[in-house]
Design a protein around this nucleic acid. Structure first.
Length: 565
RNA sequence: UGGGACGUCGCCAAGUUGGUUAAGGCACGGGGUUUUGAUCCCCGCAUUCGCAGGUUCGAGUCCUGCCGUCCCAGCCA
């Protein structure tokens, strides 16, 4: 098994079709491929394709190849190959073979000769503009190139010359001879090879001609004995060409192409072109910026491979275009981490509280469960002292009726400790509250009978003396609007959310958290799930908030606010 | 005014050869448990399948005609 999450997955048209084919004995195993072009980082949309491809092969006794579609050396780079391999592996998948379309250049060249010899391809010496004009339009047929009827021997000589470097870039192309009047524009003598003197990241300067996607992809599938070539909807129109080439070439197998709709999510962009721009123009800190929908970004943000796989399974596979709310991805992370993440306490925006009846200089250790739903995960002792920090948001001077946290004269429970009452507020010269003076109820300590006493709210806290100062980075959606790419009138970067990143320099975390390891994750109780950033060090802990907890109060508060106005 | 595809609850999405009460998840609403306003647990949530006709004892599933949305005119993938 090369992919996790063995199948309990729901039916979708591809799985149903393959299952039928297998039942009919058409295949004894299913072989798929994940075929990225190494010109950028993988994003969550690719994850959908990866999960699908590996799942189909895995469920039907086969395997998946990782194949780099590297037929355009002008934009492909080794560093992208590296990142893609890292990301696929991180997602939890093991490909059978690491393949490159460029490994097949010699075979592909032979296939081109095969077409030429059968008068199914010809060398066209017209320039790109002329070819475009002759292609016709969506509603008008194209017209034939004057070079279309050249002899096979002349075409062969020219094509060999192309390979030998006898002609300058752009001087001529090899075209399939199909039908310039075809209603499907892809069949109007598509370009199969072009001359391009570009250094290729793998083949170096061995070639100055490169096959087009259409000529390379299907044949690569066939060479690898791929049974099902799964791709996105925009290639639907290419399928007749895909099939035409397979039919007319002496390929070792006959793969079929099946298309499904690509993943769209709101409040983000998914096209490589746009993601590249965000990086190149420094709108984000890099491909792995935690606000990016890239796998590298999601990983740094704190997403687990499990949550991403679950998400990809949950959204299904169809041919209808859909937009998935970003919150669905986030909920999958919560669902995963809720079960797995150990709980800790941390205060993001500290407000000092002095427990007036707690002896100065003393430290009391309270036992705290690492996971309230899972006693087997044990507990730890957390120090509490006369001075503590609580969350600024957990105190309101003038609180609405439904505010269950601390307010003047009110009581609240300190999680895992005892009940306190707010007796007094201390203000600075500006009148801002900078400290609370509270008294605690000794009899309400956790474990004592008095702990049964009910108060409405429970808040988290850290000992001022023991807590460790940390940086915490909070992330919000990258864009302000649901469909930043859908605005024809504006540049998508105009819709960037200026508040997508908030850095808190003065958070206080429970002692022990400074020893967090790179791949740890925690629930900071009542706040959300947090992971150490790569910038993390013992001396300067840095945590990323991967996702907040579901926050019913925030929703209520928003309703109250809007209802009041 | 070419070709290809899609249109089932706010968002996804199941729906065998037409057979009759239109899965499920998310979101949402209500209730319960709770020292995380979290989690968890109950309950509710499409007389209706883009629209209009038609065939049929019976249609989301078949036919016809509309409407809407997406993709295609790179020597990109």
């Amino acid at each position: 098994m090369n992919s996790p999450d063995s199948s309990t997955a729901p039916a979708h048209f591809i799985r149903t079709r393959i299952a039928r084919e297998v039942a009919e004995g058409l295949h004894d195993r299913v072989v798929t491929r994940f075929p990225p072009e190494p010109n950028g980082y993988l994003h969550i949309g690719h994850a959908k394709s990866i999960v699908l491809n590996f799942a189909m092969a895995d469920e039907f006794n086969g395997y998946t190849n990782l194949r780099f579609d590297d037929t355009n050396p002008a934009r492909e780079e080794q560093r992208f190959i590296d990142s893609i391999k890292t990301d696929v592996a991180w997602l939890g998948y093991r490909w059978k073979n690491e393949c490159y379309a460029s490994d097949y250049f010699e075979i592909l060249y032979g296939y081109a000769l095969h077409l030429i010899d059968r008068e199914l391809a010809y060398v066209d010496e017209q320039d790109a503009d002329t070819i475009r004009e002759q292609r016709g339009t969506l509603t008008e047929p194209g017209s034939n190139s004057p070079y279309r009827t050249r002899s096979a021997s002349e075409n062969r000589k020219l094509f060999e010359g192309m390979r030998a470097g006898e002609f300058p870039d752009g001087a001529m192309v090899l075209r399939a001879r199909i039908d310039m009047a075809a209603p499907n524009i892809n069949l109007r003598d598509p370009v199969l090879y072009r001359i391009r003197r570009e250094h290729h990241h793998r083949t170096g300067d061995d070639w100055c001609i490169y096959p087009s996607y259409d000529f390379a992809h299907g044949q690569s599938d066939a060479i690898e004995h791929i049974t099902h070539s799964l791709c996105t909807l925009e290639f639907e129109d290419h399928r007749p060409l895909y099939d035409w080439l397979i039919e007319h070439l002496p390929v070792p197998s006959r793969p079929v192409q099946i298309e499904f709709s690509r993943l769209n999510m709101d409040f983000t962009v998914m096209s490589k072109r746009r993601l590249t721009r965000l990086v190149d123009e420094d709108y984000v800190a890099g491909w792995d910026d935690p606000r990016m929908p890239t796998l590298a970004g999601l990983r740094r943000r704190g997403f687990t491979p499990e949550s991403i796989r679950a998400f990809c399974t949950e959204i299904g596979v169809t041919k209808s275009e859909s937009v998935i709310p970003f919150g669905v991805l986030e909920r999958n992370l919560r669902d995963d981490l809720n079960v797995r993440a150990p709980r800790r306490m941390a205060v993001l925006k500290p407000l000092k509280v002095v427990l007036t009846n707690f002896p100065a200089g003393e430290t009391e250790w309270v036992s705290v469960a690492n996971h309230p739903q899972d006693p087997s995960r044990g507990s730890r002792d957390v120090p509490i002292t006369r001075e503590i920090f609580i969350e600024q948001d957990d105190f309101m001077e003038e609180a609405p009726k439904k505010f269950f946290r601390l307010k003047p004269g009110g009581e609240v429970r300190l999680r895992n400790a005892f009940i306190i009452r707010c007796d007094e507020m201390v203000r600075n010269n500006e009148g801002e509250i900078i400290e609370l003076r509270c008294s605690f109820d000794e009899t309400s300590r956790s474990g004592l009978p008095g702990a049964e006493r009910k108060v409405k709210g429970t808040i988290h806290w850290v000992s001022a003396e023991h807590a460790i100062t940390a940086e915490v980075r909070l992330y919000d959606r990258l864009f302000k609007v649901p469909h930043p790419g859908g605005d024809k009138a504006a540049d998508f970067v105009d819709h960037l959310n200026p508040e997508s990143l908030e850095i808190l320099q003065d958070a206080r975390i429970e002692p022990g958290l400074e020893n967090a390891a790179a791949d740890d994750f925690y629930q900071f109780e009542r706040l959300g799930y947090f992971v150490p950033d790569p910038d993390f060090s013992r001396a300067r802990p840095v945590f990323n908030r991967a996702v907040t907890l579901r926050d019913t109060w925030a929703r209520l508060e928003a309703q109250l606010a809007s209802g009041r106005s």
